[in-house]
């Protein structure tokens, strides 16, 4: 999903505070974004993340996919992924 070495280049605190080591920029992630971002760092596949979102947040797959794609696009735009 990304060419970046997220384990080394990014720090995410349990509170959702994200620091990008390479740019010095910081971001605030909501609970769902933290969940998705952690899974991406663990290199979990997109479809599996979506299934886990369904279980974790008790939502349907369409909504889970929307949330995942929205986060992914925003994170790409900001250069986090």
């Amino acid at each position: 999903m990304t060419n970046r070495n997220l384990k080394e280049e990014v720090t995410l605190t349990p509170n959702g505070f994200l620091f990008d080591h390479t740019t010095g920029l910081t971001y605030t992630l909501n609970y769902t974004s933290v969940f998705i971002f952690k899974k991406i760092v663990e290199q979990v596949e997109a479809n599996k993340i979506i299934k886990e979102l369904v279980q974790m947040f008790d939502i349907d797959e369409i909504k889970a996919r929307q949330d995942f794609e929205e986060f992914f696009e925003i994170a790409k735009t900001y250069g986090i992924l």
Partner: peptide, 23 residues
């Protein structure tokens, strides 16, 4: 370091250490 805040003379007033292999 990345400058976070500048004075009106463009001097760093706050900054944060970074790590970027390219830099």
């Amino acid at each position: 370091m990345r400058k976070l805040r500048l004075t009106d003379k463009g001097k760093a007033w706050a900054g944060i250490t970074i790590y970027d292999k390219v830099l």
